[in-house]
Amino acid sequence: MEKLELIATTTFGLEAVCKRELLDLGFEDKLVENGKVTFFATEKDIPKANIWLRTAERVLLKMGEFKALSFEELFERTKALPWDEWIPEDGNFIVEGKSVSSKLFSISDSQRIVEKAIVEKLKTKYNVEWFKKSGVKYTVEVSLLKDIATLTIDTSGEGLHKRGYRDRAGDAPIKETLAAAMILLSFWNKERTLLDPFCGSGTIPIEAAMIGKNIAPGLDRNFAAEEWVRIPKEYWSEARRDAFKAIDNNVKLDILGCDIDKRSILRARDNAANLGLEEDIQFFMKDMRDVDLKDDYGVVITNPPYGERMGEKEEIEQLYTDLGKKFKELNTWSMYIITSEESFEKLYGKKADRKRKLYNGRIKVDYYQFYGPKPPKEN
């Protein structure tokens, strides 16, 4: 089967996590760059990548890449690409674009040139002068970075963070992809207790339960490429059957989520129930200061309130100080906390073993990692 180049796009800072996911899925990675990982795959792998990737934002089919210093060059090189092998005569293709540090800085002009080039290419196969575009949608993107044009078609449709379970979200929800990355970057595993003391609508506990039970994150949603003529329907059916078979329904998880807001807890329970995980996660309403915990090698992974979005600065600072005091006595616990507060370590009362720069939406955050000892059976 023909080898294709696919691109898994990511939030900045998650490229290495996504690369590890791709390697674990059996893909051969080619290149890791800011915000994306290029890898080799086949048509059958397009469903697999979309259904299984937890930290990628989208999976793009790479049509071509070349230097473009003029619109004439962009037109001719785009026209030479095999658009006719993917887009049918009635294909409803639209062109999106972006340009950074490139001579061809006009995005609208670049989009127009690329669309014209694709039309000219399709004319050579379908022998028509006008395309109705009444069929399946194909989202083409021309990305210009330092005069290098990358042409892709989006296979995902809606962003992969939209798993389908989060009907109700809180006031400041964390993206599912970032929540999954926080878990994958931690030392938590399905044998250990996990607590999110600021669980909101339950995203971190739910993503952890999905990882613990090996539930593919895209199992309950649809993708743009499912409607493409080029990819047989049985590829999608087979990928979903394999994903269902991979679920570990026998694993016993100890995942806890608490919040002081009753509405958040109700949302979290509903979201977990959408995946049938209501028996795997305990959500309860309580201030984190009052939660009773055993010193039993548990793991905290959390996205606490930060900035002016969620409350006054003084309240947030006191919250972080109290969080540090709460877990100071729990010597065997590991803590993983994401926040935009630059003085977090001072407020928490301890320097992190590792700090990783990430982004929560457009907000620059740091992921503070405090390592506790390994449980005895892991030694």
Rank of each mutant, 00 (worst) to 15 (best):
E158D: 14
D171Y: 13
V128R: 12
G135Q: 03
I174F: 05
T124F: 08
E129Y: 10
R166E: 06
W130G: 11
L185F: 01
T124W: 08
V136E: 13
T124M: 14
K146H: 12
I107R: 10
V142Q: 04
K162W: 09
I148R: 13
V119E: 13
A172F: 05
L122Y: 03
A149D: 00
E129I: 08
R112A: 13
L160M: 04
K175S: 11
S156P: 05
L151M: 07
G135Y: 04
I118M: 06
T155Q: 03
I183C: 01
G164F: 07
T155P: 03
T124R: 15
D109Q: 15
D167W: 12
G135P: 03
L185E: 05
V114H: 05
A180T: 05
F105M: 13
T150Q: 10
L151P: 04
L151A: 01
E176W: 08
V128T: 13
D171M: 14
E115S: 15
I107P: 08
E176C: 10
S110I: 05
K146C: 07
L178C: 03
D147H: 06
Y138M: 09
K133Y: 03
A149N: 00
S156D: 01
L122P: 02
E120H: 10
N189A: 00
L151F: 02
W130V: 13
S186V: 00
K125D: 05
F105H: 15
K123F: 08
R112Q: 14
S186F: 00
F131P: 01
G164T: 05
T150M: 06
V119R: 12
A117M: 05
A179F: 00
A180I: 01
L144Y: 03
V128D: 06
S186P: 03
T139F: 09
K175M: 11
D147F: 01
R112G: 09
G135V: 02
S108T: 15
V119Y: 12
G159T: 11
S186T: 00
I148W: 08
I174D: 03
L184T: 03
E115L: 12
R112T: 13
T139W: 07
I113L: 08
Q111E: 15
T152H: 09
Y138R: 03
W130M: 13
L185M: 15
T155S: 10
M182R: 02
S110Y: 08
A180K: 00
N127K: 15
E141I: 11
T177G: 01
Y138K: 04
H161V: 02
S156C: 08
S110P: 08
A149T: 01
E129Q: 13
K121S: 12
E141S: 15
L151E: 01
K116H: 08
A179K: 00
K125S: 06
I174H: 00
G135K: 04
K123C: 05
A172W: 06
K121D: 06
L184A: 06
L160E: 01
T155R: 03
P173H: 06
G157S: 06
W188V: 00
S110M: 10
I148S: 04
D147P: 04
K162C: 07
L122F: 02
L184D: 01
L145V: 14
A169V: 14
V119K: 12
K123I: 04
L145S: 11
K146W: 01
S186G: 02
T152K: 04
N189R: 01
I107M: 06
S134E: 14
